[in-house]
Amino acid sequence: MPNIKIASQSLDFHYGAFQALHQVDLNFEEHQVTALIGPSGCGKSTYLRCINRMNDLIPGARVDGRLTLDGEDIYAPGVDVVELRRRIGMVFQKPNPFPKTIYENVAYGLRVNGVKDKRVLDQSVESSLRGAALRDEVKDRLESSALGLSGGQQQRLCIARALAVRPEVLLMDEPASALDPIATQKIEDLIHELKRDLTIIIVTHSMQQAARVSDRTAFFYLGKLIEEGDTRTIFTRPRNKQTEDYITGRFG
């Protein structure tokens, strides 16, 4: 039996009076890549942000239902949100490196968590950059500013920064939408590599990208989960007419 890493049951989400998610039931298996697809405003990014409680920061936001990580309620009272976000890392649409050196960007999370040992930091920065397929490109300029990297390199640096705190889950919100095709390809190759150690959930507007990188695909529309299944099936013979219309570009 595959291990369910994250599960949501009857998940509702409100922005004040507006209900953005309706009764979402969805499981994410360990070491699988799941793509969340759907037209703008369908709730896929909102859903993604529920998983590491990024929506907590929005005034008037309210979550109902159940969302678990390894069977434990993410929204239970007393959950350490900082620790939760260490276990569930996130990469955003636009690369957002800190205005610091490449080394310090990757070491940042470790320092925040109290790691001071230079040897431990060096090893972690090295392995995280390697894990993000960036080490060979930056190994001779670790003390240079991260802002001097290309967009694709900056995004992989952000992935390295997320990997440094050894997360179990990586949430990716359109991680390649601001990148050129070569940089996109590198991110997609990286996703294939990372799933050996991580569970990955990716929001993407590119049907081709969802088809290329994911094992499973979930289609959202108007805040509801319309269909979820094996990516090969979703993109060749979806069961639901709305899913088919969306992935064939008939509406959006």
Partner: peptide
């Protein structure tokens, strides 16, 4: 056109 689903079929 990178067709999908019924179009690809």
């Amino acid at each position: 056109d990178q067709p999908m689903a019924k179009d690809l079929r």
